[in-house]
């Protein structure tokens, strides 16, 4: 496990981007040195820049033109039958690996005997859980963002089964989901008449404390961290623990440059400074077993 090559993945776009922006983003992503691209709507079923079929078409096109692995990501919070219907369609795509972000998808995929992946909102906190899911067809999992390197280390130590491990290493972290749309609420609008305000906030809408500390970002029914998780300086450690994939969560601008920095660092080259791409700053507390929003200095190691 120690000598494997670390792979890079691009997580699903968490935000509501326009159709043109999405196509442009994936055209650019195709040129980056990521090994895997996850795509699909994971947050809100009202976001329909691309229809379900168009996501699958895009997956097909990217797969054909780039040779990269394409994975279809699915909704994280399912409430309506229409959402389950879309989920079934995606789970039955027959071509691409599916990332389950809710136990509904785990059920649909495992009951069909189809191998699957899980995203950061499927709660896998220990090796026993992982073993159950591996038996049901789990092929790859993403460590929940609140878990530390020490927990991951212990989980992988207790595991004899084959599974690929992915860690969320860059981006604003998904922290929670709700029935309520907070972006709509911030405009005093109900969810059912949200006027698609999320389109105006391609990296989420900032929420600060009353003393102007940037704290969270509202992304519709999802709430994410205002700070950007960055584990670029931890690559050696990630490799040593036995991580297979590093996930970069897309942001509206400069994702390609961030991918480039990680790619160089994996190859042992000096990575360019990516600080300017996260204007509110970085955090890495969770990885170090600390408060999530903290930035633990790792330069002294």
């Amino acid at each position: 496990m120690m000598n494997q090559a670390l792979k890079l993945s691009l997580g699903p776009v968490l935000y509501y981007w326009s159709r043109d922006d999405l196509y442009e983003f994936y055209q650019q992503a195709a040129q980056t040195p990521v090994d895997t691209i996850y795509l699909g709507e994971t947050v809100c079923s009202k976001r329909r820049s691309l229809r379900t079929e168009e996501w699958v078409d895009l997956a097909r096109e990217l797969s054909r033109n780039t040779g990269k692995e394409i994975v279809i990501s699915t909704l994280s919070l399912l409430e309506a039958e229409s959402e389950l219907k879309t989920l079934r369609k995606l789970c039955e795509n027959g071509e691409f690996l599916v990332e389950a972000n809710d136990m509904a998808a785990v059920q649909l995929l495992s009951s069909q005997g189809v191998p699957f992946a899980t995203g950061p909102t499927v709660n896998i906190y220990n090796a026993e859980t992982l073993k159950v899911l591996i038996k049901r067809g789990l092929k790859r999992w993403v460590l929940p963002v609140e878990l530390s390197k020490s927990t991951l280390h212990q989980i992988l130590d207790a595991l004899t089964d084959e599974v690929e491990t992915e860690v969320f290493v860059y981006g604003r972290m998904p922290l929670t989901l709700s029935a309520r749309c907070f972006t709509a609420r911030s405009f005093n609008l109900p969810k059912d008449d949200c006027q698609y305000k999320c389109l105006d906030y391609p990296d989420g809408r900032l929420l600060s404390t009353q003393e102007k500390q940037p704290f969270l970002a509202l992304n519709g029914i999802q709430t994410i961290s205002a700070l950007t998780c960055n584990l670029l300086p931890e690559i050696d450690e990630l490799r040593q623990i036995g991580v297979d994939f590093l996930r970069i969560s897309p942001q509206f601008r400069h994702t390609d440059k961030i991918v480039e920095a990680f790619s160089r660092s994996i190859r042992g080259e000096t990575a360019p400074d990516i600080k300017p791409f996260a204007p509110l700053g970085f955090c890495n507390g969770y990885w170090h077993g600390e408060t999530g929003l903290r930035q633990i200095s790792t330069s002294s190691r």
Binding site: S76, L77, T121, N123, Y125, P144, V145, E146, M173, L175, T176, L177, S178, A179, R180, L216, T223, S225, G285, Y286, G289, E290, T291, G292, L293
Partner: peptide, 19 residues
């Protein structure tokens, strides 16, 4: 207000979550 079991706002600020 958040979906129980998948809210880590508490640990984002304190290091400890319900989970």
């Amino acid at each position: 207000v958040m979906v129980e079991g998948r809210c880590i706002l508490s640990s984002y600020v304190t290091g400890q979550s319900p989970n």
